[in-house]
Amino acid sequence: MEFHFKRAFETLGPSLLDGVGVVIYVTLVGFSLSLIVALLLALGRLSKIKPLVRILSIFIEIIRGTPLLVQFFYIYYVVQIFINGISDMLGFETHMQIQAVTAGIIGFAINYGCYISEVIRSAIVAIDPGQREAGLALGFSEKQVMLYFIIPAALRNSIPVFGNYLVMMVKDTSLLAMITVQELLLRTKTYASQTFLTVESYTILALMYLVISLPLSKLCTIIERRLKQSK
């Protein structure tokens, strides 16, 4: 057996760096959106409007009960057929073509939003009811109490868990290869099939993920420790 790591690195490396850009972009945008989705879902599920709570619970169950990869396929291939079909019926000519990266970001926002909403919801429920009472007693409304005191404390308590999900999302971007996003895995696969440098290519790919995720989880540990100290 003979390996050509140097050659593989020199030719695949620059392409992977571009891929890292895609991964970081998708993760940053996807994760930020997923936090917003999560907060809205959590607040919706804590609302007093029974039908809303029911609908959101079912939605979250559906998302959590199906694989992320299938959701990507669904958003990328199926949703646009629906949209085009419906607008055809209404008499519009549309040829909506969703971009693969956009489909990925939407998929992440929804999927991770559902998982993280459970984290935020339980963090909100876990806040000492005395906080609410103190806020109300000062003259704040229920909404203000939520906004000023409960949500900030709940989000802060959730930060360590957010960190775990962030690292997971970085790794899950590899699923986007299946819907043609030019991220790390797809670039590597293409390269390996052209050059037959299979061992080299996928080893470099794995290292690439480690280079991103190890420092990220280290950073999360540090932040977590800081938060504990300042409590």
Binding site: D128, G130, Q131, E133, A134, L136, A137, L138, G139, F140, S141, Y148, F149, P152, A153, R156, K231
Partner: peptide
């Protein structure tokens, strides 16, 4: 809420806002 502004309350378990400094706890409302 208008009424409660005129009626202060001190709780058994203090219920201060943990993420705010002492000063902010007092001046926030």
């Amino acid at each position: 809420t208008q009424y409660r502004k005129h009626v202060g309350m001190v709780f058994q378990r203090f219920n201060l806002f943990p993420l705010k400094t002492v000063l902010d706890n007092v001046m926030f409302a």
